[in-house]
Design a protein around this nucleic acid. Sequence first.
DNA 1: CCTGTTGCTGCAATCGACTGCACAATCCGC
DNA 2: GCGGATTGTGCAGTCGATTGCAGCAACAGG
Lengths: 338, 338
Amino acid sequence: MQTPTLRDVADAAGVHPATASRALNPATRGLVNADTARRVIKVAESLGYRPNPIARGLKTAKSGTVGLVIPDLTNPLFPPIVRGIEDVLEPAGYSGLIVNTDNDPGRERAQIEQLRSRQVEGLIIATALLDHPLLAQLRREGVLMVMVNRRPDGIDVPSITPDDATGVELAVRHLADLGHRRIAHLAGPLQTSTGLVRARAFRSAIRDRGLDDDPDLVEVCTYWSEEAGAVGLRTLLDRGTEFTAVVAGNDLIALGCYDVFAERGIDCPSEISVVGFNDMPFLDKLRPPLTTIAIPHQQIGAEAARLLLDAIADPARPARSVLLPLSLVVRGSTAPPR
Amino acid sequence: MQTPTLRDVADAAGVHPATASRALNPATRGLVNADTARRVIKVAESLGYRPNPIARGLKTAKSGTVGLVIPDLTNPLFPPIVRGIEDVLEPAGYSGLIVNTDNDPGRERAQIEQLRSRQVEGLIIATALLDHPLLAQLRREGVLMVMVNRRPDGIDVPSITPDDATGVELAVRHLADLGHRRIAHLAGPLQTSTGLVRARAFRSAIRDRGLDDDPDLVEVCTYWSEEAGAVGLRTLLDRGTEFTAVVAGNDLIALGCYDVFAERGIDCPSEISVVGFNDMPFLDKLRPPLTTIAIPHQQIGAEAARLLLDAIADPARPARSVLLPLSLVVRGSTAPPR
DNA sequence: CCTGTTGCTGCAATCGACTGCACAATCCGC
DNA sequence: GCGGATTGTGCAGTCGATTGCAGCAACAGG
């Protein structure tokens, strides 16, 4: 015995399938006699009827799914975001289809094509790479989208981004409060919007507080990686510029600093303080535990999902964008300068 | 202009939709004149035709989706598994629908119900909790399933599990080779199959190598957590039994040991060596970097997906189960005893 | 020249739910 | 007691692709 269909319910309740359909759908229930509706609903329950979303989707052109485009689920940044998204999607009767692009533009195109052919109702895009032409094209074709972690410039797409500027400000203020005057910045790649925003915010935070604003104190890393962070710090150190603290572009870069500290016998935090960015898991297990800026990843995901659901409900609504506040997590890698 | 439908392709190629359908489907292509087929395929390409999986699913009763039931995506254990699954699913034209159960049986039931109503063709289950009644019921109802990380006893369901026993054996051998004779074990909860299997494997590995087999050297932790690990190690220490090395049930438990070392001023590895289990990310950043047993999570996922696809292709095939080999990753937390 | 194959294509029904329209029943006021 | 409004329900077509069956043409064999 298979899952019962609408027909079965209708037969059992002694009504026409059309009537059963209307009775079961809250939006059209008003068209049906209240008694009949009740009866149909009861029968449906007793039979364990579950509407077949595939059949429904065919007629209504809605699939109840949205696509999540991320670079790599394995990157600890994304699971909390995805979790936040799912937590909002699920109660709304939607599910997410995840694709990993590995930051490969070709793959990205293909995957998005896949998602579209699966009739997703919208896209949540968390990849930085996405080239504008594709984005603009999707926009033109009326594909609903929400961007995560990245502000699309020039294109009118809703986005959720952490308030990086304030985050950096928080880090700088913390170090300044501890008494640091010469603070260095290991920036992430400036091609990424995050890298750029944080680097700019760093300069202005330094100026605002009247600290030493020396271009030599900023070094740009080629990737958001540990190795790149290590290379960056070495360059900074070898340059001979004095500094007592480092604001790293993200936690991985900060981790690279740890490697250099070990390598050169530098003590953290007594000789150099470090602040990371992201609050990845297990940072508290490091020696010393890393002080960092926490990003509410799960909230970001949840907010993104909400925005997308809004857009699905009313595609005409203008693109809204959200900036989520960050917080400083003080641990052991920061201390007053000697 | 919308996505072209099969009709559009057929019209453009001057054939009947039925013929177009057959030409496009590799399985039925043989029924169509080779020239016609070629022409249809060409037209389809030039129009950018993509079959609508929803419509197809309605007729064929296949959705091209499978359900992934996991406790919590945020747990670093799962992203690589999911990634491995997706990597196999995608080229096969399938997608995975992820649900998080948070180890709540009620949620688990509801979520699985959700997945079934979405017409998933099979389930990959990675939760430990899943109570047998539900499992057995699903089995009876003909739902295709594959279990990950857990061997279903008594029920005939394919499963993919890491070869825990050999893993433990590897850890013990490594310590024995370093010269340790009195090795302790901080076991995970024995209600979990993993906890039990590892604990048993520990005893037998110890015996096999003729090391000191003292019941006092084994302590069972109440959870797979850092806190529980710390509690476990304290109990072990306070008991006064001598030992120079610890095999932890998993990495989190090992992390708990680190906390106790800091607390009591014990030096690792010179006073006590520790081996973890799982090889979570960033373990190499700890002080000292944790020696551990690496589990091929991604492969586990990939293998699970393959098994499920096999089952979908031929549901009659008997349940096959796979045991995946583990490997020892030697880092800084193990050294010869003093 | 007729019958019987073989090979290809078209017709139409089907999957399950939704929905515009028509029709029936009921009720109201005059 | 009749016309007209108001519910409530049924009919049938639709979404897009698949598939059993029928039909048609070409061709071989007798």
